[in-house]
Design a binder for these strands. Structure first.
Lengths: 229, 229
DNA sequence: TATGCAAATATTGTATACAATATTGTATAC
DNA sequence: GTATACAATATTGTATACAATATTTGCATA
């Protein structure tokens, strides 16, 4: 079941656990013990500890001293905080791009990326979410600011395990594509204000959508815990 | 020589090494080995490894597989990238604060913080740099967005080991204070555009100053390496 | 002298054992 | 019945040993 074996066990365990958390196989609040994971994976504590450490860094897992690790609880305020930071960073991105403008050739590449998004079948919501993410990251990439891109990636990472639960209607998919196109157009036209507003609209729509998805997820989790108890 | 003993050795080693790097006791490019540090501190590899891991996370140290660790080289582009990110985040901060406005009472607290900055003696440039940092972080804190504050802190952290070398003239100190006051005034008056511009001016001035300091530091380091070789 | 191969060495990852510390459970006293 | 003290247990941090892998060194050969 191991995908391409990585050079070390820590990253393997990390990936597996992260995947499980993102896929909600472990619900928020689910608890780990180092030894438990050792037994499950049949390895020693060293790599397990490091994997857990990485998960804590990625803010997916919390650690309570002498009480173990647990999958971080979803927190509405934190979601909003993340969206605010994302907004701040991406506004900078589109303003930067719109101010500089882009040579036709590079712009086409961005445009092509947008087209692949549009062609996504609405059935595959996970793919759509990923392509959406890629669009925004590509946008950030064009600034040439690797630090900025890294920051946006880490934000996306933390939002990701929510977004897979995002219920993407056909309508929402269409709207998102239009919004992306509008952003590109504004950049092309070097209209900074429009670019910012277009992005803002896109992000805020995403925020609302996620907010809705979260509430449903929490409701499901609540029902799940009821059923379990 | 140990300050308040922390619960674990890893963080002790981390703090000590970080301090040394920040104080330029280890020049950029300086190399570590795990075992070397083990001997120096008289401890085993486990805590040393973890300390180095933390340093790598904080981007102060680089790790080359099977070649050891080294203090990260200063990179002008990276500095600019960090300043751009900082700008993006802090623009959001002041716009947010200016939009919301602040009750007289809370504003006074911010103002008091500014006053303590103004009272700094120019002799103590390190103190000044720290108070400057605190001002900006307090500003971010007022938004109530902990994630945002965290991000700004981590940026400051990475810029910090440059700023201690920052040659702060009396004039620059005075100007900085005025700029801070202007930011506060704009927020108070709920003038969003002015607040943004005031902040922008302040950040860009800082950037220029650091840019200058870096060039000197690099020149010194170059001369140092010449002398050493 | 340059180049390729093999041995030696160093770095890194992992396993395991032990010690320290915090939490939990239990018994006893009030 | 509650509270406190103490023992039992679990978690965590650290030390050490070993294995795997990459790099460097040394040597032989062209």
């Amino acid at each position: 079941m191991k995908e391409q074996h990585s050079p070390n066990l820590s990253t393997d365990v990390f990936s597996v656990l992260k995947e499980r958390i993102i896929r909600w196989e472990y619900a928020p609040g689910h608890r780990f013990t180092e030894e438990g994971l050792c037994e499950e994976f049949g390895i020693s504590r060293s790599p397990v500890r490091e994997a857990l450490r990485m998960l804590v860094e990625n803010q997916l897992v919390e650690k309570a001293p002498h009480k173990g690790y647990s999958v971080k609880q979803l927190d509405m305020q934190e979601i909003h905080e993340l969206y605010d930071v994302r907004l701040a960073l991406e506004i900078f991105v589109v303003e930067h791009l719109a101010r500089r403008g882009y040579p036709e050739k590079e712009w086409r590449e961005l445009y092509r990326s947008w087209q692949s998004l549009r062609k996504t079948t609405p059935a595959n919501t996970a793919d759509f979410a990923q392509l959406d993410e890629e669009f925004h990251e590509q946008l950030a990439g064009w600034t040439g600011n690797r630090t900025l891109l890294q920051q946006i990636r880490s934000i996306d990472e933390r939002l990701h395990f929510i977004r897979v639960t995002d219920i993407t209607s056909i309508e929402r998919l269409r709207v998102t594509c239009e919004q992306h196109l509008r952003i590109l157009d504004c950049i092309k036209e070097k209209n900074i204000d429009c670019a910012r507003e277009a992005l803002q609209l896109n992000i805020e729509d995403g925020r609302k959508n996620v907010e809705h998805a979260i509430k449903e997820a929490l409701a499901r989790a609540f029902l799940g815990s009821k059923a379990g108890a």
